[in-house]
Write a protein that binds this DNA or RNA. Structure first.
Lengths: 149, 149
DNA sequence: ATAGGACTTAAAGTTAACTTTAGGTCAAGA
DNA sequence: TCTTGACCTAAAGTTAACTTTAAGTCCTAT
């Protein structure tokens, strides 16, 4: 049998969040329709858990909580906000793709740095490796030239 | 002829940072060997610009400034800190790869959401599309089961 | 010579996203 | 029965990473 409601402590473990963070989200209105049981304890149903999943997702793409709040509000407002929500995800997709590219670039830089320091550690010194050291700027040098006025 | 020193304003434009952020980094000791000209204005040379490049890079992988500071300190301390620096990049590589995977997953979710809302906007309502709506939880459901104690 | 613009410092202020504290309720087990 | 642990609220505190403010210097162009 499927469990259909969870305590705040269970949800905290599920998402690896603290109990007080969940209370804070609730307080901020990020978890719509979150009910309480007879003794005032929060009862999280699957809708509430979906909301937290979305929050965590949007947090990971650096969306501030106030924007996440707006998205959640749009959801509650129904069909009139559909185009808002569509453009939110279109924009998100763009920034996400840029971020992915940049992180892949950084990943290459980190790979290089790993090799660089591996050799240096083997040698016991940076001296020998530093001659052919490629600086980060040589790997990516599109930022060097200041915009002319 | 290559320019070999830049003003704070030029560097700010280069990296799309504010002038006060650069002063803050300097104050925090993140830019070693940053000199000033006769009238007390900061003169950024290529070593200083390299440092900022690294800072920006490490910031983008969510490294806090205090850790970046430590890395910069290690650099100044020379060969005795080589293994520290190696393990820093080994760890960075691991977390970076995890992040990349997670972002790709989120990218798929966002793609789905774009399609979802595209259809909804075409229909003028979420009603028809919501029947076969795949929740985020169905796309990724490895967080559902709370850890048993 | 004076006004504007880019620079300087030191210190105070801001913002987001929590986290902690203080004091209280409630249910279960020894 | 009484203590332990999980929950509750409201409010204050924390931290990072800037940003702003206030007061001043220096150079250039009108």
């Amino acid at each position: 049998m499927e469990k259909n409601s969870y305590t705040i402590g269970e949800v905290a473990k599920m998402f690896n969040l603290s109990v007080s963070t969940l209370r804070y989200y609730d307080q901020e209105g990020l978890i719509p329709n979150l009910n309480k049981d007879a003794s005032g304890h929060r009862k999280f149903n699957s809708e509430n858990i979906d909301a937290i999943e979305i929050i965590e997702c949007l947090k990971e793409v650096n969306m501030p909580l106030k924007d996440i709040k707006l998205f959640i509000k749009w959801n509650l407002e129904g069909d009139i906000t559909l185009s808002n929500r569509l453009s939110l995800f279109i924009n998100l997709d763009k920034t996400l793709k840029k971020r992915l590219e940049r992180l892949e670039e950084i990943s290459r830089i980190v790979d290089y740095k790993k090799e660089y320091y591996s050799q240096a550690v083997r040698d016991g010194t940076e001296k020998f490796v530093s001659k052919n050291k490629v600086s980060l700027l040589e790997i990516k040098n599109d930022r060097r030239i200041p915009k002319e006025k």
